[in-house]
Amino acid sequence: MEIAVQTVINVVLLGVVYILMGIGFAFILNLLGIFNLAHGAIFMSAAYGCYLLVVKLGLPGFAAFPVTVLAAAAFGILVERFLFRPMKADFNRTMMVCIALSTVLVTTFNRFLGTRALAIPPFLAGTTGLGPYRVQTDRILAFCIGIVLLVGIILFVDRSRWGAQMQAVTQNREGAALQGIRFSRVAMLAVSVGFGLAAIGGVFMGTLYNLTPFIGDVTLIKVLMLVILAGLGSFNGIFYVGGLLGLLYGALPVVLPGAVVDALASILVLALLLIRPRGFFGHE
């Protein structure tokens, strides 16, 4: 029964990480038309950044976490202003820029920290009794933070002014401009929020699982899977499909080997792509 509790926590955590990553990726793709291949590298860098803050500088986890996220968001503003905007949404050129960015980040962490697996020390040590079961306190904390973040991001996208502006630009750029929404500001906001969300996902993964310079690529593929399934231009879809993927990758490995789960998910995505290229929730 203990495994069931663990599984529920895992499902929610994975789902939250996928949703955060997917929302960020979708913001950048929908608003700027940039296929951000550096998203996985940002995710990885944030996890390593948090690791360095905690282990090398001795900061407590609760301070290092927001610092990492804010740093990533600030980095996003710089990247949008100095790397993405001069490319004028040209697909080929933005791709080159993204690959250059991701190469620099991966190489840097590879060189200075090596390729061996690291882990961010848990924010809270020890285990807690949950009824008759023992669960790591850290995971319960992450679970709670994850739920709060999820509610927060839903409120941000659906209820806040900025979220509404982003959705408006996604739906119709000219129409949004006619309503007085400045594209450059919304684009900057989107990249900054996207990178910040990727950083949150990275810290989550870094505390709960191992950390290598290559986790970025694996996560990028998952995010892509999520965005394909949800459909371009759909924000609500990402929540549903993110939850589905979390369920798939959090719960199924308990009963099936990992390779089979991967194959199942891949076939699901390929089949959907061929039957309904716009995804479950996509629209034109």
Binding site: V97, A100, T103
Partner: peptide, 12 residues
């Protein structure tokens, strides 16, 4: 890789 990344950026 830094050299190749720099080349990519210059070209882009």
């Amino acid at each position: 890789p830094y050299v190749t990344a720099a080349i990519l950026l210059i070209i882009a």
